[in-house]
Design a protein around this nucleic acid. Structure first.
Lengths: 228, 228
DNA sequence: TAATAATCCGAACGAGCGCTCGATTTATTA
DNA sequence: TAATAAATCGAGCGCTCGTTCGGATTATTA
């Protein structure tokens, strides 16, 4: 089990690793030069942003709160961001890149096995969102307040994910394993089943539903719906 | 066809009707006395709130924008609300009450027919959220910024809806029609399928998916998953 | 260790926020 | 139509927001 074939291992999903990639992407906009220092502070800023935003919403989070929570000063924050909205696009971009990397490289062993591929996609996606839950919640909830280009990226990213599921379904149909009227629509119905794990995470935690049971249930649910 | 057996007809879902109920609930807090005037203005305020909030988020919406959009003055708004947050609870309360009223009164003809009841619940719920889409989007997206008691109401309301689905599933199991390991978890997976219609509404509109096709697809999907 | 560079700090600024209230307009009543 | 009540208005209040910037602090170099 587990996303063994995933190119990017799960350590790459740590906040530190994610922030290292964010730093690289924004090298010229971040004035702090020392790598380890910049990554560490960026991590504290991003972590605080996710915590505060997911509790009260990005707009309601003030930079004074963010400074207090992250342990930096008001001015210190501005060594890492050019303005508040930059936090939005940093986080969204990383989420987008991560989900794309994770799903577009299924293990070679699954080639020619649409059922197993579908299972792998479901499990990998759910485990990915588990490992970076605050990031995904943020991207999901704040999407509407993104500036237009970032919002387009979010939509495209969602579409890309759906396309991956759609392709798996189609090859299952071709193999005579699956039977669905509209693969595109079927793929877009799988998405909310996967999203519910992180969107309503606290509900499932409260009810004692483990990630394994959730994955299992969604998998069974989807397979029944796709079965020929 | 449609939710023929629904006690509250679909005219009751108009903004006017909803605002009349909101007015009733907040009679003492609203200083305008003339009924038709109060309802009309409240409707314009609520409609503007939904429009602006769903575009940019409730917190980002300023009362000056709201005044402009609704056609009232700054001070005029305060004849209808005691403070900005009151808008939140007005809308949430109405959504909560409406969904509860709609689903808890299935037509008598469906008694003893769990499969038909499940279909009716899915269709009625989707048509309800279609008729009041901005309201449901608002309640869904802004839930986290509710004050604690209102947030509790939102959670309870969601739980109540799930319980209705769960009961239908259980009676289907008892009748030997359905076969699922965990009816509670199954019920909570049906919810996101229904929610996706209003949460990602613009995606489905762009793809030309009609509400009838969506209802049909979700119904088939769910029935396959529940089938014995 | 002195000189220099990199980093961090937080008071201060203008803008815009939620909200109030006395003046004004509109509707009702006598 | 004059007198009264109801409804509406928007400039102004205190405050907090995002953002800046010059000085204090720390690290690096010679």
């Amino acid at each position: 089990m587990g996303a063994k074939g995933c190119e990017r291992s799960f350590e790459a999903l740590s906040t530190e690793a994610a922030c290292a990639r964010i730093l690289e992407r924004n090298r010229d906009a971040i004035s702090v030069q020392k790598q380890h220092l910049a990554v560490a502070n960026l991590a504290r800023i991003i972590e605080a942003t996710l915590k505060l935003s997911n509790k009260q919403g990005f707009h309601a989070m003030t930079l004074r709160e963010l400074a207090r929570e992250s342990g930096l000063s008001m001015g210190g924050l501005y060594s890492y961001i050019s303005h508040k909205e930059a936090l939005l696009s940093m986080i969204l971009r990383e989420v987008s890149a991560t989900v794309n990397d994770a799903l577009s490289a299924p293990p070679a062993a699954l080639r020619g096995n649409p059922a197993a591929l579908t299972r792998w996609l479901i499990e990998t996606h759910i485990r990915l969102t588990e490992a970076m839950q605050p990031w995904f919640v943020f991207a999901f909830m704040e999407a509407k307040s993104f500036p237009a280009p970032a919002r387009k990226m979010a939509v495209d990213s969602e579409r890309a994910t759906e396309a991956i599921f759609e392709a798996a379904i189609r090859s299952g149909i071709d193999a005579g394993l699956f039977q669905v009227q509209d693969p595109e629509l079927a793929a877009s119905l799988i998405k909310p089943l996967i999203q519910d794990w992180y969107v309503k995470r606290s509900k499932y935690r409260k009810r004692g539903v483990s990630i394994e049971r959730y994955i299992e249930t969604v998998t069974v649910f989807v397979e029944a719906a796709l079965q020929a």
